[in-house]
Amino acid sequence: MHRFANPARFLRLARLIQPWTAAAMFACFGVGLYLALVASPIDYLQRDTVRIMYIHVPAAWMAMQTYAVIAVASLVSIVWRHPLADVAARAAAPIGVAFTAICLITGSLWGKPTWGTWWVWDARLTSVLVLLFIYMGYMALWSAFDDRQRAARAAAVLALVGAVNLPIIKFSVDWWNTLHQPASILRRGGPTIDPSMLKPLAVMGLAYLFFFITVLLMRMRADLAAQRLEAAAERRVMAQEVPA
């Protein structure tokens, strides 16, 4: 396990793949936006508002996937004390906040013309709002401690506890009556979205995924550099305290 824990090895890998993930992100966003806004049909019932789906649904997927990444990294951090796991979990949190907030805002802008309301307190909408609060609590906990080790430990515990919300979000539409529709993609019997609408959705999903990878790598690199600078500053203080 610790063979991959070497930050220098990670940095070399990150610098190698980051240009490619960034290029893939820009390409997918270009193609995806064209398909979503121009080259896809309207829905028989929702007309043009279906175009909000192409930015809303991938945001919901990635909000949950980012949390899953944080939870797994937190498990690895607690059990195996892998030094990069904390870095990855911490770097992912603001990206998760972005996806969750985008999911909620675009969902609201979609709900008004289709359902007739900006917001309802049904199980799906409420559980995603709870996810946003868990993300914010997670980030607040990281900055509440001066000692990085203790902050990492506390944040990892919170991340694992909060993971119970993920299945609740996914199955809320099956367990309870909700205004939100049931699943269209990951369901028994296959997707219930026409192929002409599934394609832009898939491309936008890839664009969001490559955005996540690219920004995660950038934020991890920044955090590792900040740690190097901090360690150097500490060495300098210690060197000054030693009488010459």
Binding site: I52, M218, R219, A222
Partner: peptide, 30 residues
């Protein structure tokens, strides 16, 4: 957008601003 312009374009603007902002801030800090 078939009369739904305010909703659709606002939604796309929110995504563009938030993702671009987060990407640029992360890149500059790195």
């Amino acid at each position: 957008m078939g009369g739904y312009a305010p909703y659709i374009w606002t939604a796309y603007a929110v995504v563009a601003v938030w993702l671009t902002g987060l990407g640029l801030v992360s890149w500059r800090r790195m």
